[in-house]
């Protein structure tokens, strides 16, 4: 049995239009909720790395990115009850063992210290690399000195105020976090306080 082209075109078009309409309607219905979830997640991550923050402002800045393209950088300014700035949070990324690791970092410019770090997204090996999400690893970033930059050290307790201990057997993941934070932090510091002096190692 051979069908005419017209019947084929009609059948496909009708299906596409009906399914498309259904999707558009459903998207319209749930989109506010999806957006809410995203913002709630962002809020939680920001408040987790900025102690004492009650609210935050978003600072957007365009910088020259790769291949001449403009890149938008978002910095979250944490504000406490009295309206004072408690610190800045930003999102950093680093290439992990299997995929990109994304983290939220809290920064205190006055004391030149990090106020916290939380992993937002990662696909590291379960049982090894994914330990970067654990308290034992992330808590090391609290009050970590950023001078001259943060560093990791293997298999022993950190000696300097700017060092964290890498996870045994997962140096690549630990390194990705440290390098990701360092790279982004440099840029954030350039934007927020270009005159600030960081001691060179």
């Amino acid at each position: 049995m051979k069908s005419s082209s017209a019947s084929m075109i009609i059948a496909l078009s009708v299906t596409a239009v009906v399914v498309g309409g259904l999707l558009a309607g459903f998207y319209h219905l749930v989109h506010p909720r999806i957006e809410e979830n995203r913002i709630a997640e962002e809020r939680m991550a920001i408040f987790a790395v900025l102690q004492g923050a009650e609210n935050y402002d978003i600072i957007e800045k365009e910088i020259a990115g790769a291949r001449g393209k403009k890149e938008a950088v978002r910095i979250f300014k944490g504000i406490d009850k009295e309206g004072k700035t408690v610190g800045y949070a930003f999102i950093a990324e680093g290439p992990g063992f299997q995929g990109v690791i994304k983290m939220m970092v809290g920064l205190n410019i006055g004391s030149k210290k990090l106020s916290g770090m939380n992993v937002l997204e990662q696909v590291e090996t379960p049982g090894l690399g994914n330990k970067i999400t654990e308290e034992r690893f992330t808590s090391q970033f609290k009050n970590l000195s950023i001078e001259p930059k943060i560093e990791y050290i293997k298999n022993k307790k950190p000696e300097k105020p700017n060092q964290i201990q890498a996870i045994t057997g997962a140096t690549i993941s630990s390194k990705a976090v440290v390098n990701g934070v360092n790279n982004r932090m440099k840029l954030i510091l350039d934007i927020l306080s270009p005159k600030m002096k960081i001691k060179e190692g």
């Binding site: 049995m1 051979k2 069908s3 019947s7 084929m8 059948a11 496909l12 299906t15």
Partner: peptide, 10 residues
């Protein structure tokens, strides 16, 4: 209603 030739696409 769907012609056999385009059933998979549908």
């Amino acid at each position: 209603f769907v012609p056999g030739e385009v059933r998979i696409a549908t």
